[in-house]
């Protein structure tokens, strides 16, 4: 049975001025419901990890936060997503503006077929920035912990970098737009352990300046890097399966004291 809105998934402790306030969010692709009944508060300057088995809608949820689901034909979003108090699915909301404030890093590194410099500079340049581009590129690459490795070959193709470096370049590219939030969709899943470690380190540093929401299917990773964890799962029978949010709270608490629902999932081998 689906839980009524405001059931166990809703957090009791409300915070003032959250980055995101999500209420009764549901997403469907055509006739298929991907996610329903999600209530969640994303706090500022924290790392919120979204975990759960595949198909539980965690990526779908992430892509609601900067309206990336607009790109998917047939995607329908209902409910309420407030970013800094403004409803981002209101008819008056401007998706392009939202995406500048809520940056995104994808599962596989996807640098543009351009130079390292241009990858970082292109979005600010297109947004109208003319002066201080060099400084911005250096600052963004430094924050992404990549500057030392690429400062002597900024004009080389982004594809000359390793996978892990490419992913950090994508983080630098996102930072260069000066967002307030970074959304990360399993940013280390295509990388080797060393590169993964570098990315995790980086996330730890970035949370001082940014609110971070990260999807991961790796529980240990969630435990290592996040302040809060939101646990999604799939609910319903085969014909009417949909992702739901089961549990959310401080990461330490979630992992020390898993709820009944999640234990069930873990024991039945669906996750973890």
């Amino acid at each position: 049975m689906p839980e009524p809105p405001g059931g166990p998934a809703r957090e009791p402790d409300r915070v003032a001025n959250p980055a995101f306030e999500i209420a009764d969010l549901a997403v469907s692709y055509g006739p298929r419901v991907a996610l329903r009944g999600v209530h969640l508060t994303v706090r500022r300057h924290e790392v919120t990890a979204l975990i759960g088995p595949s198909g539980c809608g965690k990526t779908t949820f992430l892509r609601c936060l900067n309206r990336m689901n607009d790109l998917v034909p047939g995607a329908r979003v209902s409910g309420r997503v407030d970013f800094e108090g403004e409803p981002i699915y209101a008819p008056t909301a401007r998706p392009i503006e939202i995406r500048r404030r809520v940056g995104m890093v994808f599962q596989r590194p996807n640098p543009f077929p351009k130079s390292i410099y241009d990858n970082v500079a292109i979005a600010p340049r297109l947004a109208g920035l003319r002066r201080g581009l060099n400084e911005l590129v250096e600052e963004s690459l430094t924050r992404a912990a990549l500057w030392e490795e690429v400062k002597d070959k900024l004009r080389e193709s982004a594809f000359s970098l390793s996978g892990g470096q490419q992913q950090r370049l994508c983080i630098a590219r996102a930072i260069a737009v000066r967002p307030e939030v970074l959304l990360m969709d399993e940013p280390a899943s295509a990388l080797d352990p060393v590169a993964t470690y570098a990315i995790e380190e980086l996330i730890g540093q970035l949370k001082r300046d940014y609110t971070i929401v990260i999807v991961t299917h790796n529980m240990q990773q969630a435990a290592r890097i996040s302040d809060r964890t939101a646990f999604f799962t799939v609910e319903g029978t085969d014909t009417e399966r949909a992702g739901v949010l089961v549990e959310v709270g401080p990461t330490a608490k979630i992992f020390a004291n898993p709820s009944e629902r999640r234990k069930e999932d873990s024991i039945s081998g669906r996750f973890g």
């Binding site: 900067n66 990336m68 392009i96 996807n110 640098p111 590219r173």
Partner: peptide, 12 residues
Amino acid sequence: ALREGAVGLGMA
């Protein structure tokens, strides 16, 4: 992936 990357940066 290129399109998504670009859209995700807030390009028109």
